[in-house]
Design a protein around this nucleic acid. Structure first.
Lengths: 167, 167
DNA sequence: TTGCTTCCCACAAAGTCCCATGCGATCCCT
DNA sequence: AGGGATCGCATGGGACTTTGTGGGAAGCAA
């Protein structure tokens, strides 16, 4: 609705691997799909990454194009470029929502995340993410403490930089 | 009316989870919604946060945009950025007032706050907040003592910085 | 065949829209 | 200044629409 993905949705995954994309996320995906037009179904890019990633990141097509041009500007053959190519071109796949607003997650992806019956679909600004609910919950604070004075009991909004750019 | 949300309103929540937004708050929200125009209904961002927050913070769209750009300027992957994303993109949702000036609070949010029949809608300057009335009353002064010399029995206005910018 | 994928239909719960009422404040006319 | 009409706001309820979900039939590959 505002050009961003916002909110948490816990949706089911059925035996065929189908997962409903929240309706407002669909609108956003349609918006970010150059080929989309009313009546058609939006496409997207699913980036699942390697073992370091325990979730799938879902990008709009337009954002994928941006990433593509950024990568092509990196030094050919450099380590960083190879890493980027691997992440966004190899450890990724495209998907299109069906008539009922769902995508199909292949068995490979479901296994990688450990998804069984449900998945968390979570907005994250310009992208959204797909998590196993337990993994998502566990990722909250437990393994994140103690980075330069980080206080897990403090309301995170205190870290928002003020208008004068301090903090 | 003055670019800020001011005042306490105790409004009802019906069986469908509908809650009236005070009329002057609506004006303010319309003002802060770039897409709004006369005849249309204002949208807003509801930030409910995690277990540490016992209320919902309601922001104008323009303020959400500011937060968005601030977050995107933080180092990608840093813990603080991750926290901000979680608070403002994940533990949040968008809402639009309907023709009669109400928004719908989903069962999830109502449960989180323990809202049953009524809610306190409280202005707080550039944002406003939604509380369970009992929680709001209890949160007033009781748990705020002893923060660097804070005296709960003193009139809070003494903490207002003077014209010379001291305190 | 057997397994997998895509398309189509069905349905209940949740969300949205539309219309109605009661009350208080405001405005207006005499 | 009094009294009535009007307007705006909070609230309630019914009807309709959307969304998430389940399952079956038709295509396709091995």
């Amino acid at each position: 609705m505002f050009g961003v993905f916002i909110g948490e949705h816990e949706n089911k995954i059925d035996a065929k691997g189908r997962l409903s994309i929240p309706a407002d996320f669909r609108r956003e995906l349609e918006d970010g799909d150059p080929k989309w037009e009313p009546g058609k179904n939006a496409s997207m890019l699913l980036v699942y990454g390697d073992h370091r990633r325990s979730h799938v990141e879902v990008m709009k097509i337009t954002d994928m194009r941006d990433v593509y041009t950024k990568i092509t500007r990196m030094p050919r053959g450099s380590i960083k470029r190879r890493d980027m190519e691997r992440l966004y071109f190899q450890q990724a796949l495209t998907a299109t929502v069906d008539e009922t607003g769902r995508i199909v997650l292949s068995a490979r992806v479901r296994d990688k995340l450990g998804l069984d019956g449900t998945a968390m679909v979570v907005g994250n600004g310009s992208t959204f993410e797909i998590w196993k609910p337990e993994t998502y919950a566990a990722n909250d604070l437990s393994n994140l403490r103690d980075e330069d004075g980080y206080d897990p009991d403090l309301d995170p909004s205190v870290y928002l930089p003020g208008d004068d750019g301090d903090v």
